[in-house]
């Protein structure tokens, strides 16, 4: 800081004695060089830091997982060769309108040169693109890798009268419309799971959207709602205050090995509501950039330190490559409209 001040002082002395025109010329060139450094054209991608847009606020699960997942992007091996992407990654948050703001910006305005990626949340963004007039959909975005999968779990308060899914469904059958189920918001995985359960069990239960997963969990803990769908990772952490009745996935999860799936409990609910998180680029990005990212991004996710941090923060991981993610997106794009049809009217 001291040095900087000193140079500034010297600069000022010099500038005061020089002519105005000379000064502005100098200034112009220095600004231009600055611009040139940050705006240089891409050749031999990647040659400068890469951004990741997160459509939610800082501190949320998607945000901090994105930060951990991209932690080792600039890692080099012993010979100084990049292990994965080879450039540092920074995170930019563009929250608003339940993620729509950020993804709209990404699909329409983000640079298509591979220097701006975005984190996706499936099924959330696909469901939104079906229900609303959005600028994004599965066709104008290209996935490059998946780092996590967080299934929705059905939870009730610690003192709840329900101990199994069957208790809850029986009660709902006897008292239609009397069961309230909280979730993180409209059209997120929790909402999808809620719709699937209501359909599979043939019951009338009410969905109460919260302001994010934390708020939805609070409603369950405080007893304001009778049940809730929430993130498996958050529920596993809050084991003391709640009871976890079932997992909305095809298999049991290692975090909660004792909790049965909804299928085991007798309700035909698949993994449509599982919250997949990963990275994508907008369509129109050069194919060589996409293939470079598709190759390096999963390697980055599988880094030892990253995986350790993920484990430490209780974040369920699932690394998938571009082709697997593409198949998963296509499957969701087919199954979700059917589920959401009743809501659309």
């Amino acid at each position: 800081m001291y040095q900087l001040r000193k140079t500034c002082q010297r600069k000022r002395m010099y500038q005061l004695t020089s002519k105005l025109s000379k000064l502005s010329l100098m200034l112009g060139t220095s600004l231009l060089t600055l611009a040139a450094v940050t705006n240089a054209n891409a050749e031999g991608y990647p040659e400068r830091p890469i951004g990741v847009m997160v459509a939610y606020g800082p501190g949320g699960a998607t945000d901090f997982q994105a930060r951990i997942a991209t932690l080792s992007s600039a890692l080099e091996d012993k010979e100084g060769k990049p292990v994965s992407i080879g450039q540092p990654i920074y995170v930019t948050n563009k929250p608003g309108a339940g993620g729509r703001k950020g993804w709209n910006w990404f699909a329409s305005k983000a640079p298509k040169d591979g220097y701006m990626l975005a984190a996706y949340n499936v099924p959330h963004f696909i469901a939104q693109s079906i229900m609303f007039d959005t600028k994004y959909n599965v066709d104008n975005l290209e996935p490059v890798g998946n780092w996590g999968a967080d299934p929705a779990v059905l939870i009730v308060g610690k003192d709840s009268e329900f101990n199994t899914v069957k208790d809850l469904v029986d009660f709902a059958k006897a008292n239609p419309g009397k069961i309230t189920v909280s979730g993180a918001g409209k059209f997120v995985g929790h909402h999808i799971a809620h719709l699937q359960l209501a359909k599979a069990a043939g019951i009338d239960i009410k969905y109460v959207p919260g302001k994010g997963g934390v708020d939805a969990l609070k409603l369950v803990k405080g007893g304001q709602v009778k049940a809730g769908f929430n993130n498996l990772s958050d529920a596993a952490r809050a084991k003391g205050d709640i009871k976890v009745l079932a997992v909305a996935d095809n298999e049991r999860h290692t975090f909660l090995p004792d909790v049965p799936t909804l299928k085991e409990s007798g309700f035909d609910v698949d993994d449509s509501s599982v919250n997949f998180r990963g990275l994508m680029v907008p369509k129109g990005t050069p194919p060589e950039v996409i293939s470079y990212l598709a190759k390096t991004v999963p390697t980055m996710f599988n880094d030892k330190k990253t995986q350790g941090k993920m484990k430490q923060t209780n974040s369920p991981v699932k690394t998938m490559n571009r082709d697997e993610v593409k198949a998963m997106w296509a499957a969701r794009a087919k199954s979700l409209p059917v589920l959401l049809n009743d809501l659309k009217k």
Binding site: P58, G59, G60, R67, V214, T313
Partner: peptide, 9 residues
């Protein structure tokens, strides 16, 4: 709320 993220990390 933001601090919560700092704790979880």
């Amino acid at each position: 709320a933001v601090l919560l993220g700092g704790l979880l990390i």
